[in-house]
Every structure is written in C-alpha cells, then in structure tokens.
C-alpha cells in the first residue's frame, strides 16, 4: 500500500482523525505495566475514557482482582455496582485492599438487578471526578454497551464491566456476542509454580498466575499472555519462562479486527 502524500488527502486524514478522536488519545491510557501487553494495545495501555469488558468465572476471583488492581493504580474514588446474588460471590473489601484498592476509595452499590446496575453505572459516568466505574453483569449486550460507551466518551470516566463466563465452557468454544466495548478480556487462573516447601508432596503457594486473553480490541489481533497476579499495589508481573510450559505470550487463537 503506497502512502499518498497529497496535501488534500493529508488534510482529510487529519480531519477524520479529529472526528474519530480515539479514546486513548482523548483521556490517556492506563498501562498494564507488562511491556509485551502494553506494546500490543493501541496507545500503550487501556484507554481511560472507554468501556472495557472483563470476563471471569463465578468460581474464582481472578477477574475481580484484575479489576481491583487496575483501579488501585488510578487516583480517586471508585463506584462498584454489585450484581445479582449468585452472579458472583459477594465482594470482600479486605481482599480488594490486598490488591491495593483501599476500602475508603470504593463506594459500593448493592444494585442487584442488571437494570439497576446499568442505571447506576450511567449515573456514575456523569461524574468526572471518579477513577472508575465497575459494574457486574451476567453479560454485556450491544445496546447497553453502546449507551455506556457513548456516556464514557463524553466524560472520560474509566468503565469496567465484569461479566460472568459460562461455567465449564472451554475458552476456545465460547461464543462471542459483539458489543461496543473498546477491549474485551478474559481472566482465568493458571497453576502457579510449586515450591517444594514446606513439603515436596505438599507445596506451598507462590504468587498466583493468570492467563490474560485479549479477546477483542479495535484494530489489534486477539492475543493471550501469562502474567503473575497483581501484587499489593495492583501491579501485574510478567511470568517467567517455566520448565513445563512455553514462555508468554501464548499463541493467539483467532485474529479479530
């Protein structure tokens, strides 16, 4: 593809860019702190004035901790809208504090119904001082995601939707319903390395490992990485090369535009 350098075209390109105003240039990005992932993402991180979907299972808290770690590294209060009972187990603030998200920064809303979660999220988006808004939903349909995405474009608030992955499904077989989220992630635990302490037959726990799947990102291919779970300040770590598995990143399954 040859690059046309005609001044009229360049002018047109600049105008389209101004009209499109990608979120990562409008309100900045939050780097994940892992070079390989940030290099893959447009702008070098998660766009702040945009909507991101994070899918996790109801049987572990990896996605929850991933969200808490992201918000821990941003200044300001957070609105966390908890979903229906049975969607995820109730949040435990000491655990969030362990990922760096202090309890006095989080305003919890026991929303319950999905309708209320969406309504409260939209209210929260109208408040520019917030570090972020989190909503727990069973899934994020197109219409709701578009409303949230438009609202966040106007105020520049960081929005994370925590959705539940269907139980027992393999990630490869999951059907992906389109929505308007800027990026869509899947967070799942991986077996951590086992130190032979205190006992070779009964190893202790090291820092947890997660598999991060970037399922969809505008203009980028889908990709997967293996990372170390966030630490007490919310920072992820790049997982080292392990004897029993390949180094990060894991091979991409399907490329998506």
């Amino acid at each position: 593809m040859s690059r046309n350098t005609s001044p009229a075209l360049a002018l047109l390109r600049a105008r389209i860019e101004r009209l499109e105003r990608p979120a990562e240039r409008r309100s900045g990005v939050l780097p994940l702190g892992v070079g390989a992932i940030d290099a893959h993402l447009p702008g070098g991180g998660l766009a702040l004035g945009a909507l991101h979907e994070i899918a996790g299972s109801g049987g572990d808290a990896a996605a929850t901790l991933f969200v808490a770690g992201l918000l821990a590294r941003l200044p300001g209060p957070v609105l966390w809208c908890q979903g229906a009972q049975g969607l995820f187990a109730p949040l435990f603030p000491p655990g969030l504090a362990g990922a760096g998200l202090a309890p006095d920064r989080v305003i919890h809303l026991a929303a319950g119904e999905e309708k209320t979660v969406l309504l409260a999220m939209e209210e929260g988006l109208g408040q520019p001082g917030l570090a972020g808004v989190v909503g727990e939903l069973s899934r994020l349909p197109m219409t709701a995601s578009r409303r949230l995405a438009l609202a966040t474009e106007a105020t520049g608030v960081f929005v994370l939707v925590l959705v539940r992955r269907e139980k027992g499904e393999k990630p490869e077989e999951e059907k992906i319903v389109p929505n308007a989220a800027a990026t869509r992630w899947r967070v799942a635990p991986l077996p951590a390395p086992r130190p032979a302490w205190p006992h070779p037959a009964w190893p202790g726990l090291e820092r947890a490992l997660w598999r991060l799947d970037l399922v969809r990102c505008r203009g980028r291919a889908a990709a997967s990485w293996m990372v170390e779970a966030c630490d007490a300040t919310g920072c992820l770590g790049l997982a080292g090369v392990l004897p029993d598995r390949s180094a990060a990143p894991l091979p991409a399954r399907r490329a998506r535009a």
Partner: peptide, 27 residues
C-alpha cells in the same frame, strides 16, 4: 469541589436506587 461532586453522585444514586444500598466498607 471534588468531595461535594461525589456527594452529588451519591444523592443521585440514593434517590434512584435507595440510600440503604449505597455504602462503603470500613475496618
């Protein structure tokens, strides 16, 4: 005005979903 802005958000949420559903955790 950061704090009072937050108060406005809390007001709007409390009037739509009920004040007893909004809380913060403390030790």
């Amino acid at each position: 005005g950061g704090e009072s802005d937050l108060a406005m958000l809390v007001d709007r949420l409390a009037n739509r979903v009920g004040p007893e559903r909004l809380y913060r955790a403390a030790v």
